[in-house]
């Protein structure tokens, strides 16, 4: 009989935990604890138990009855509260209502990417004015008046005799006038060139200029920094190529290409070079003691390559359906 009681307890536990429908709970209670239920029926067998065990069997009967009653009460409560949950249930598939953050312009995002890479390499962010003088835009950068080198830097002039900078290299000069080496700076900004507007040209665009001046800076430093930049920005497997070029403010000068598998060709991404001694002299830095390198890149060009934008004009149309994709 004691065995039968234990089995009854186990069966009741199992059946109760499987039960989810509150309607059937009452039926189950009748089945186990009703006047003609299983418990009564098993208890009836006490007469068959030998006398010396009767006391123990009685205790067991009381224990099991209590357990069963507790089990039914707690199950009943559990089912009732679940029922309440269901009645005020959240439809989790309804649309969210928290406000969405805005988007940074893709050119800002590219700028942040570039800045992040160079900041880790020890470069400090600086900026300078868009309205400039001949001195900062040309003369201090070793671009004399009436020289064909100026053809590459067509420039807007304002009615007050000033001009709109045609490159961010102006910031190099401003920083070197105020601060002495060692220097490692990065200057993003807008530049302007009178240029017919088409899919790849805009009269206003953005550049990021970098400059390092210190003792014993060599072409190997230029290569190391720009190589790491290209691979961080375009991916670790990017093929990078350094090619001689000409800029008035650097010597030797280089253009940096990356191999673009999508187009199956080398594409220019950066101009760079060792700072020309004339430029250093113009800001009273001794070129015998200090050397350095400078580089510049077009933000629109990087963004077009990175995001697959085909027309530069999209950056300035400000269509939110375009801007919100980034």
């Amino acid at each position: 009989m004691i065995e039968a009681l234990k089995q009854l307890e186990a069966e009741a536990r199992e059946e109760l935990s499987a039960l989810t429908d509150p309607q059937k709970l009452a039926d189950l209670k009748v089945k186990y604890l009703g006047r003609k239920g299983l418990f009564v029926s098993v208890s009836g067998r006490i007469s068959e138990v030998p006398n010396e065990q009767k006391r123990f069997a009685g205790q067991e009967m009381n224990r099991v009855k209590q357990v069963l009653e507790t089990l039914f009460v707690s199950r009943e409560e559990a089912l009732r509260s679940a029922d309440i949950e269901v009645s005020k249930k959240t439809d989790t598939t309804m649309p969210s209502t928290f406000f969405a953050p805005g988007n940074l312009h893709p050119l800002t995002q590219v700028t942040l990417d570039v800045v992040g890479i160079f900041e880790r390499l020890g470069f400090t962010l600086v900026e300078g004015p868009e309205v400039e003088t001949e001195h900062y835009n040309f003369e201090a950068l070793n671009i004399p008046l009436n020289h064909p080198a100026r053809d590459s830097f067509d420039t807007f002039y304002l009615d007050n005799g000033k001009l709109l900078r045609s490159q961010t290299s102006t910031v190099q000069i401003r920083v070197m006038e105020k601060n002495k080496p060692p220097l490692k700076i990065l200057a993003p900004g807008k530049v302007f060139r009178p240029d017919a507007t088409d899919a790849t040209h805009s009269f206003m665009f953005h550049q990021i200029e970098g400059l390092m001046v210190d003792e014993k800076v060599s072409f190997a430093d230029l290569k190391g920094v720009l190589f790491e930049f290209a691979r961080e920005f375009f991916g670790p497997k990017t093929k990078v190529r350094f090619r001689p070029h000409f800029f008035p403010f650097t010597e030797p000068s280089a253009e940096i290409d990356i191999f673009f598998p999508l187009k199956d060709k080398w594409l220019e991404i950066l101009g760079a070079g060792m700072v020309h001694p004339h430029v250093l002299k113009a800001v009273n830095i001794d070129p015998e003691k200090y050397t350095g390198f400078a580089f510049g890149m077009g933000v629109e060009r990087l963004a077009m390559l990175k995001y697959g934008v085909e027309d530069i004009r999209q950056f300035f149309e400000n269509d939110v359906r375009f801007l919100r994709q980034f």
């Binding site: 390499l121 020890g122 600086v126 080496p181 290569k223 920094v225 790491e228 350094f242 090619r243």
Partner: peptide, 25 residues
Amino acid sequence: GFERVGHRIPATHYSEEPVRDAKAT
């Protein structure tokens, strides 16, 4: 040939008056 030159990451030396540009950042 430019490709003959190796790559080197230059050390950052700090000057006594480092460049600070609160506006740029």
